[in-house]
């Protein structure tokens, strides 16, 4: 009931520290600034997406520019991936997309490589040049076959 400025100040310090911690987790670590659609929606079709998941990263030259919003099958039974990238990006129409892996066993993500066309991609456009995910097991078994050793089966 009685006024106590020191306590109020300490409570203020406590709340500010807590909010700073939440902000750090959300923005710096969680990348909350890329939340939700509203950016540039592009469609990419792959033969094989491997371990790609919704909300995986999309990068250009290693810099995060967006995330995967949806993965589904199209009518030709190929994997149709919708990505959501920063709308300020001016990607040429001949941009190519590749599924890469960070490290040997790390998470998979999509790397976009801009081409040289003048025209730029608009929301809803499809990226035509794609490179599917490399599956480690397939690579190993191919390697084993090429070496002329019987594949373990």
């Amino acid at each position: 009931m009685s006024e106590s400025p020191i306590r109020d100040f300490l409570v203020g310090v406590f709340v500010l520290m807590g909010l700073a911690a939440i902000a750090y987790m959300s923005v710096a670590l969680g990348g909350a600034s890329y939340r939700g659609p509203g950016g540039l929606q592009l469609i990419v079709t792959f033969d094989q997406v491997g371990g790609l998941k919704p909300r995986s990263r999309v990068v250009v030259g290693g810099v995060k520019v967006g995330q995967i919003s949806e993965i589904s099958l199209d009518e030709n039974l190929r994997a149709r991936v919708v990505i959501d990238v920063d709308e300020r990006l001016e990607l040429p129409t001949d941009t190519s997309a590749a599924i890469l892996t960070s490290g040997v066993l790390g998470n998979q993500y999509i790397e976009l490589e801009p081409g040289g066309e003048e025209a730029i991609l608009k929301s809803g456009d499809e990226i035509e040049f794609t490179q599917s995910a490399l599956i480690l097991e397939q690579m190993i078994s191919r390697l084993v076959q090429n070496l002329g050793v019987d594949s373990p089966e």
Binding site: M25, S26, L29, G30, G31, A32, R35, R55, R57
Partner: peptide, 9 residues
């Protein structure tokens, strides 16, 4: 790279 706002934070 491991932490995603919606999934984790």
């Amino acid at each position: 790279s491991a932490i995603v706002f919606q999934n984790d934070v």
